[in-house]
């Protein structure tokens, strides 16, 4: 059992002198002696991350939570999912990142114009190292494994991906048939390699 414990729509954090980073303003309650302060430029990712975020519009705003005690974090009644990283990378939309423990680095990665169709940024946040991450999702998260096969995901339902995955965008002829009135999928994300794709049972912006 780690420092982070997801319980439905709340994340419990047990601190014994460590520092974690959490989404700014996500604290709903705490006990003990705990300090909250802004993680600084680029959500603690440093000047380079801050600059890239500014350019990419990937808005990651984190605070540092340190001390000894128990903290509860939540955001808009979204479901919380805990993910463990063992010297791995996790790619996540900045809006879906709730908290991460020490030993993890955040950076911004440009991924091109692939998410243009749903107004998401042209960049995404990459978490790497070893530790625990808490993710937010609209509805309970669904994890889909990729082991040499492939999975296709609606960009509006995509939340995060973990492991050694390649992603490319499919806009084949059959996909164009989705375009039209209402919220049809103009593109789909295709993941291949080894890893896990996280998605929510709701479409952003729908």
């Amino acid at each position: 059992m780690g420092q982070l414990r997801a319980d439905g729509r709340v994340l419990h954090v047990d601190l014994q002198g460590e520092t974690i980073r959490a989404r700014t303003g996500s604290m709903v309650a705490y006990e003990g002696k705990v300090d909250f302060k802004s993680a600084g430029m680029g959500g603690g990712g440093g000047f380079r991350a801050a600059l890239k975020q500014r350019v990419a519009g990937e808005g990651l705003s984190l605070m540092e939570v340190s001390g000894a005690g128990h903290v509860m974090l939540a955001e808009d009644g979204q479901y919380v999912t805990r993910v463990e990283l063992n010297n791995e990378t996790l790619t996540v939309e900045a809006d879906s990142l709730l908290a991460l423990t020490q030993g993890l680095q955040t950076d911004v990665k440009f991924i091109g114009l692939q998410n243009l169709s749903n107004g998401q940024g042209v960049a995404t946040t990459v978490v790497s190292g070893s530790g625990e991450v808490a993710l937010l999702s609209d509805g309970p998260m669904i994890a889909l494994g990729v082991q040499g096969d492939e999975v296709f995901v609606d960009p509006q339902a995509y939340v995060a991906s973990q492991g050694n995955l390649q992603m490319n965008l499919i806009s084949g002829v059959s996909w164009r048939t989705f375009v039209g009135e209402g919220n049809g999928e103009a593109f789909t994300q295709r993941f291949t390699g080894q890893g896990v794709v996280f998605l929510q049972p709701a479409e952003r912006g729908a």
């Binding site: 096969d149 999975v151 296709f152 995901v153 929510q200």
Partner: peptide
């Protein structure tokens, strides 16, 4: 229905 698909294998 258009928009209902979230993923597939």
């Amino acid at each position: 229905s258009k928009g209902a698909m979230i993923a597939y294998y």
